[in-house]
Design a binder for these strands. Structure first.
Lengths: 223, 223
DNA sequence: TGTACATCAGTGAACGCGCGTTCACTGATGTAC
DNA sequence: TGTACATCAGTGAACGCGCGTTCACTGATGTAC
């Protein structure tokens, strides 16, 4: 039984790898996303990432220059497709601007479909010193907020929402109801027994939109 | 002009300090709270804390054993008074159980009155690997959630809230509307122009309770 | 089509810095007699 | 009330580890002729 001296795993030998294999670069990016977003920039070492990706710290330097370079590349790659979708949504050339229900539904599905996003928001936007806050404000929040406020103002103008409603606070409520359940899932799954599966997400969307719309609509019987 | 050799600040000399001075221990705890909650455990070094508190790394070892010991002591001290207040609230011997409006108002004021709490929740509860998640669930969330659900069930039983409402989702909405605005302040202050001053907090409470209560109350005219 | 050479995509080992921690020491304070 | 001594509340300097980074090298691949 000579199990003792077995190499733990097939290690890549020195020299340029044969073509067609899976790229070290891609493995590093994916591993970096998992580890950085779960535990934060400072808590993760490049040795941990390299080892989990089956590579070496030097490969990180080769591809990304340094630790921060890897981090930024990971963020760019993760965020790009979501950013593109948002860009299309805010396009003023669209036939019909999105209404409040659409926005809540779309935002909720975006969060549900990209499980790394809540971690990104917590670690890199809301936490002080987060690397991504400025970009997030410029590209996400700064674009979404006007869409919410615009939708509220339009429906308020039609008399469908209370006239004394502050559109900024109403937008805040909409975003709170939409985003917080995903941020708080590690807690609510335990104290409220909530789960993130697809059926639960749809029930959440229905509940949220109903609470929001009932909560801000014009009263039929003003006292 | 012999400014070059001036000592940067009055430094404590070796030996036991004279009595009546402000304690190094207290200064370390307060500085640790500011730095740890703003930037996270791993990003802050004990040299930074010691230096900002006008002390030395060795003093941290003397009082708290190690870095984690300082961190735990800081958490305990910060959280103790809030925990005590919560304990009184959940006391079953109280004459009247808190209703939903009371709970939202109380929770909001707790967050507004302890500006370090949102940072604590983001850094140490919602972030993966947060040191405080278990304690938070046991002592805060695990106690608050039943109070919210209880209040909702009671008002539902009276027919004041929609009968088809899931009390767990309604509690989630209440907590979302209450907590998220404080977590998101670094972002909303810039994209929505919101401020955390006292007047704004009171307007927020009024808005939130109204949206919530209108959003979940029984319909006068069921279709 | 061969072939020589530059380039590419990495590796393994070493380096220096700064981190948490520890050590030997200091001098004011509390206490027993 | 003095005084001797133990204890307390720290300090400054040093230690070792592990971190991000760098260096010299390797061998497959692409390209010019």
């Amino acid at each position: 039984m000579s199990t003792a001296a077995l190499p733990a795993a097939r290690r890549r030998s020195p020299g340029r790898p044969v073509a067609g294999g899976d790229s070290v670069r891609g493995a590093l990016l994916q591993t970096a996303r998992d580890l950085f977003l779960a535990r934060g920039f400072a808590s993760v070492t490049i040795r941990q990432i390299a080892s989990a990706a089956g590579s070496s710290p030097a490969a990180i330097h080769y591809h990304f220059g340094d630790k921060l370079g890897l981090y930024r590349a990971m963020l760019d790659e993760a965020v790009a497709p979501v950013l593109a979708a948002l860009q299309r949504l805010g396009d003023p050339g669209r036939a019909e601007p999105a209404d409040l229900t659409d926005l809540v539904r779309l935002y909720t599905r975006m969060l549900a479909g990209n499980p790394w996003m809540p971690a990104l928001i917590v670690q890199e936007v809301l936490a002080e010193g987060g690397q991504f806050r400025e970009q997030f404000i410029e590209h996400f929040a700064g674009r979404l907020a006007p869409l919410f406020i615009g939708a509220i103002r339009r429906e308020q103008g039609r008399g469908a929402l209370r006239g004394d409603l502050d559109p900024r606070l109403a937008a805040l409520s909409a975003i709170s109801l939409t985003v917080f359940p995903f941020l708080a899932l590690p807690v609510t799954s335990r104290v409220l027994g909530l789960s993130p599966d697809e059926k639960a997400v749809e029930r959440l969307v229905d509940h949220t939109t109903r609470v929001l719309l009932e909560g801000i609509r014009a009263q039929e019987d003003p006292a």
